[in-house]
Design a protein around this nucleic acid. Structure first.
Length: 612
DNA sequence: AAAAAAG
C-alpha cells in the first residue's frame, strides 16, 4: 500500500513510459562503490536489470526529505494549467514524475524504451516511420581541416561497443544520417569538431554516440580525492534552453541504457535538491543549461577537472552576446582541462563566421563539417510569406486556422507552432485564440518551469494543438507532428528564422512555414528572399522589391557563403586571415555530395535512421 | 529591443 502521492508518482512514471518519453533520472544501475574507488562504467553494470520491482513505498526517509520537496509539493493540486482550462489529461505534472527519490538506491535502471515487451510497438507507432530518405540523398557535404577521417556508411563499421549497438537497434536506427556518418568517425578519432548540420538531422546522436562509446572504453582514471560531495563528470553537454537540455538528457538515457554510463541533467527553474541527489548517485555525462551549472560549480558540487568531452549544442546561440561570458567562465575559468586535452564538439544548424571565430578559442586543430541545409530550407518545408499589417495579424491567423480546420487536418496530427516576438505578446495571443475557440497554450520565459513543461506536453499530446511561443522554442526542440510553423512576428535575424521553421519538416517529413511580413521586417527582406530562393521557394514579387531596396547585406553577413550550407569554415575566408594568422590549415578539404561517401541510395521503405 | 539563463 502506497501513500497517495507515491501512487501518483508511479502512475505518472507509467504514463511517461507509455508516452514513449523517458522516465528521467533512472536509478543507479549497480551498487554504488564507495567514492574514490573508480569503477569503469562497463564494469558497473554487471547486475542484471531483472531485479524485482521496488517494494511498496514506506515513506520518505528523513534524510531524503530535507528539502521538503520529496512529496507532492511541487506537483500538487495547484492546477497550473493554462487559462484555457485545457489540461494535458491524466498527468499530475510537476516534479514528482522525475523524482525517483522514493526508490532511490534500487539497483534498477528505468528502461527508457518503455516496457521491453512493447518496445517494438512503442517505437513502430512513433514518429520514426515513413522517413523520406530520398530527400537526403543529394545532401552536399563539406569538410575542412587536417587529415579529416573518412565517413562511414553504416553503424556496423564503427566499433561503438555492443551495449550501444543494442540501443541503436532498439531505437531502430538502421543507417546513420549524413551528419552522423561524418561526425562520428571524426569524434572517435579524437578530433575536435565544429559541425554545421540542418535541423532535425540527428545531431544529438552524432555527439552522444562517441561520448558514450569513449566513456565505456575509457581507461579507469584516478579520481582526485576532494570535497566529499563533489562529483566529477567525464562529459559535459551544454544547451541554451531548459527544455532542450531535458530532451538531450532523454535521448542520452536511451543511448546509454545498460551501458553503465550515467547521465544526469541540471537546469534552472526546478528544485536543485533533486538534481543534487541525482548527481550524488554518480554522473558520467552531465547535460546542463549554463546558469544552473555555474551555480553547481560555485557550490563545488560539480568539478570539471575530469572532463574529457565537451559538447555545445546550438553552439552559435551559446556563443552569442547573451551567453558568451557564462560559457567562457565555464570553459575557461573553472577547472576544465584546456582545449587539446579535452575533446570539444560544437554543433548547430547555423554558424555565423563571427561566432566561428569566437568558437575557435575552445577548439584545437578542429575539423569543420557542413552538411547541407536540407530539412530546414529545401522543398521539404514549403515557405510562404504574406504581407500582413500588424493590425491584421490576428484575423489573418484566424483565417489560416479556420482553413486548416476546414481541411480536417487539425488535431494531433496537425500541430501549429506560432512564433511571436515578446512574452507579453505570447500571453495575449494565446488568450485571444482561446477566446475564439482555438485551444492554445504558450511557452516563454516568464512562465514557471512547470508551466513551460506542461505547455509542451499539452501541445505534443494534441490537447492544445496550437502553441504560441517566443524564441525559447525556436531551437532544437523535436516535436513530432508539427505541420505548420507560423512566424506571426518575424525575427530580426535570418538564422533565427532558419531555426524556427526547422521545428517542422523534421525527419524527412514535409512541413509548412508561413511568415507575416510587413514594413517592420524590411531589414530581413533581402536575407529572407535569398534564403527562399536557395530553397527553391516561390518569392513574391513584392518581397523581391523590398529586398532590392534593402540597405542590408543578406545572410552572407552572418553565416557566410550562403548556398547549401548553414555556414562555411571561416578559416577559408581570406578576410579572416589577414594579420598573419592562417587559420586554414590547408589540409585536405573536400566538397562533394552525399554519394562521395558512398552512402547514396539503398534505403528500404520503413527503414529508420538516427534522426534527432 | 527581445529572449534566454540562477534565485
Amino acid at each position: 500500500m502506497r501513500s497517495s502521492w507515491a501512487d501518483s508518482v508511479v502512475n505518472s512514471a507509467a504514463e511517461n513510459v507509455a508516452a514513449g518519453s523517458s522516465a528521467s533520472n533512472g536509478v543507479a544501475t549497480a551498487a554504488k562503490p564507495t567514492r574514490g574507488a573508480y569503477i569503469p562504467p562497463h564494469l558497473r553494470n554487471l547486475t542484471p536489470s531483472s531485479e524485482p520491482p521496488a517494494p511498496a513505498y514506506s515513506g520518505p526517509s528523513s534524510a531524503n526529505d530535507r528539502s521538503g520537496y520529496s512529496g507532492n509539493r511541487w506537483g500538487g493540486p495547484r492546477n497550473d494549467s493554462n487559462q484555457t482550462g485545457y489540461s494535458s489529461g491524466g498527468r499530475t505534472g510537476g516534479w514528482n514524475n522525475k523524482s525517483g527519490g522514493w526508490d532511490r538506491g534500487r539497483e534498477r535502471e528505468v528502461n527508457p524504451f518503455g516496457d521491453d515487451v512493447d518496445t517494438e510497438k512503442v517505437f513502430s507507432e512513433q514518429e520514426n516511420t515513413g522517413i523520406n530518405f530520398d530527400a537526403y540523398e543529394d545532401i552536399p557535404v563539406e569538410t575542412s581541416g587536417d587529415n579529416v577521417p573518412p565517413p562511414v556508411n553504416t553503424f556496423a563499421e564503427i566499433d561503438l561497443g555492443e551495449a550501444l549497438n543494442q540501443n541503436i537497434k532498439r531505437c531502430k536506427y538502421v543507417k546513420p544520417t549524413p551528419v552522423q556518418r561524418h561526425a562520428i568517425p571524426i569524434s572517435l578519432a579524437g578530433r575536435d569538431l565544429m559541425a554545421c548540420a540542418q535541423t532535425g538531422s540527428g545531431k544529438t546522436a552524432a555527439f552522444c554516440f562517441p561520448i558514450i562509446s569513449g566513456i565505456m572504453k575509457g581507461q579507469a582514471s584516478q579520481r582526485p580525492p576532494r570535497g566529499a560531495r563533489t562529483v566529477y563528470p567525464l562529459a559535459l553537454i551544454l544547451s541554451p534552453t531548459r527544455e532542450l537540455s531535458c530532451q538531450i538528457h532523454d535521448e542520452a538515457k536511451k543511448f546509454s541504457y545498460q551501458t553503465g554510463v550515467k547521465v544526469v541533467v541540471a537546469y534552472g527553474g526546478a528544485p536543485i535538491s533533486q538534481q543534487l541527489r541525482d548527481l550524488e548517485r554518480g554522473v558520467d555525462i552531465l547535460v546542463a543549461t549554463p546558469g544552473r551549472l555555474v551555480d553547481l560549480l560555485e557550490r563545488a558540487r560539480v568539478s570539471l577537472q575530469m572532463i574529457r568531452y565537451l559538447a555545445l549544442d546550438e553552439a552559435d546561440r551559446m556563443l552569442d552576446m547573451g551567453f558568451e561570458p557564462q560559457i567562457r567562465k565555464i570553459v575557461e575559468q573553472m577547472d576544465m582541462p584546456p582545449q587539446g586535452v579535452r575533446q570539444t564538439m560544437l554543433f548547430s544548424a547555423t554558424f555565423p563566421k563571427e561566432i566561428q571565430k569566437l568558437a575557435s578559442d575552445f577548439l584545437s586543430n578542429y575539423v569543420f563539417l557542413a552538411v547541407g541545409r536540407v530539412g530546414s530550407s529545401t522543398d521539404l518545408i514549403v515557405q510562404r510569406v504574406e504581407f500582413v499589417h500588424d493590425t491584421d495579424k490576428r484575423s489573418h491567423l484566424m483565417d489560416l486556422l479556420h482553413a486548416q480546420r476546414a481541411n480536417g487536418v487539425h488535431g494531433k496530427q496537425y500541430l501549429t507552432l506560432v512564433f511571436v516576438e515578446t512574452k507579453k505578446g505570447a500571453d495575449s495571443l494565446e488568450h485571444w485564440l482561446c477566446m475564439n475557440g482555438f485551444p492554445a497554450t504558450t511557452i516563454h520565459g516568464d512562465r514557471t518551469q512547470q508551466e513551460r513543461e506542461q505547455a509542451l506536453r499539452s501541445f505534443k499530446s494534441g490537447v492544445t494543438p496550437i502553441l504560441v511561443a517566443t524564441d525559447v522554442a525556436a531551437r532544437g526542440l523535436d516535436i513530432p507532428h508539427v505541420a505548420h510553423v507560423v512566424n506571426f512576428d518575424l525575427p530580426n535575424d535570418i538564422d533565427d528564422y532558419v531555426h524556427r521553421i526547422g521545428r517542422t519538416g523534421r525527419a524527412g517529413k514535409t512541413g509548412l512555414a508561413t511568415a507575416f511580413f510587413n514594413d517592420n521586417n524590411s531589414s530581413l527582406a533581402k536575407a529572407l528572399s535569398e534564403l527562399m530562393q536557395e530553397a527553391n521557394q516561390e518569392v513574391p514579387a513584392w518581397l523581391s522589391r523590398y529586398a532590392a531596396r534593402s540597405p542590408y547585406v543578406g545572410r552572407n553577413r552572418r553565416s557566410g557563403g550562403g548556398g547549401r550550407f548553414g555556414g562555411r569554415d571561416f578559416r577559408r575566408d581570406a578576410s579572416f586571415n589577414r594579420g598573419g594568422t592562417d587559420y586554414y590549415s590547408g589540409g585536405n578539404s573536400s566538397t562533394g555530395y552525399g554519394t562521395a561517401g558512398g552512402y547514396g541510395g539503398g534505403y528500404g521503405s520503413g527503414v529508420t535512421s538516427a534522426w534527432d
